[in-house]
Design a protein around this nucleic acid. Structure first.
Lengths: 192, 192
DNA sequence: TGGTCTTGTTCAATATGATGAACAAGCCAT
DNA sequence: ATGGCTTGTTCATCATATTGAACAAGACCA
């Protein structure tokens, strides 16, 4: 769920600093953290305060996460899933055919789907976790998206973005079939 | 880019602890952080160490980010971009038509494109930042993806995932035109 | 060889995070 | 009330994060 060991901030800081060709003095002045502290943090000799790490993150102009979630896996992926190997869900009675594009190797907070709507079919989704967003690209046919009280009808080439932490539906409208590319992004942040 | 003020961890911890109906003693035992420390952190009276906050995160069984990125903004988005409003790039001579789907309101580490390839056109991309990944969904026609020494030819419905921190190309193969949905994900994590 | 930068590391001093124990406030019995 | 029992806050103490200054190692030049 979370990293198994406390993050090794030092190496991350050092790497990012080097990438930006900064010296300890430069970063010290830009971040407001003493040069001595930076040296010790990079050498993993101390256990810095969150305020200090935050200042350093600002100095490096990166997100706090970049320093905390240690240097990720360097594995270089190249994965192809042929159309016939893609698992297809035919969930509900009047629902669309859902092809789950995102394989296991993908980032766990992103999911890709290809939805195929038969005439009259509707995808009815309950609220997801707070902060979750969906991105729709209409490939073929037309659909009507309803989220909360907002609603819009999309035709091929249209794009929609919305928070899906409320009940929302995607309904096929018109004749023929419709195809929609959907990206679901799970944000880790909790509610407000 | 990053939060404008240092995160207020105390309130987040208190909220999450209450949500789980835990007492200071419980969380203290579960996390290994003294009850006194927890009390002071929640009262914003001290500036905890990252190691301490990390222990607390484990005790609460949440990601470190949940405690740091203060309770995010509760803005609920609903944005639709019609096909004709989408900006189209016709970059290079033999390149595809690139429609930039992702609008401004989107997360800054994700970009969506819809690529239309005329016969013989090729998208030639230099290496992106380390850790960046691309997700391709072939809508129509067939394309050949080359990243490093790996290569694969995709037909409609196929899906490809790869790290694009090296030179990579997407080439149209066959006759007629091809259409590809592309997601670019910028991972903040750097290499190892 | 000696200066004079620059970069990064240690040093002593201070500020402050972290701890266990004592403390106060509330609640529920009898 | 009185006594336990719980929850959260302060207290003295220790541990250590943080700092400015001094220091050492290297590069470059005259």
């Amino acid at each position: 769920m979370e990293p198994a060991k406390p993050p090794m901030i030092g190496q991350n800081i050092k790497r990012l600093r080097k990438e930006q060709q900064m010296t300890l003095d430069m970063l010290s002045e830009k971040s407001g953290v003493s040069k001595a502290m930076l040296s010790q943090i990079e050498a993993q000799k101390v256990n810095p305060t969150v305020a200090t790490v935050w200042k350093i993150a600002r100095g490096l102009e990166v997100e706090l996460d970049s320093l905390l979630h240690g240097g990720g896996s360097p594995v270089r992926k190249f994965s192809v899933t042929k159309s016939r190997e893609i698992t297809t869900l035919d969930t509900s009675e009047h629902g669309p055919h859902i092809r789950v594009l995102s394989p296991i190797e993908m980032a766990e907070d992103l999911e890709l789907y290809l939805l195929t709507f038969d005439p009259g079919s509707v995808l009815d989704s309950d609220a997801h976790a707070p902060g979750t967003e969906e991105y729709l690209t209409v490939i073929e046919g037309s659909v009507t998206v309803t989220v909360g009280e907002k609603q819009s009808t999309l035709t091929p080439g249209d794009f929609a973005l919305y928070n899906c932490d409320v009940h929302h539906t995607i309904a096929h409208t018109g004749s023929g079939s419709a195809q929609v590319h959907m990206v679901v992004r799970f944000t880790r942040r909790q509610w407000a």
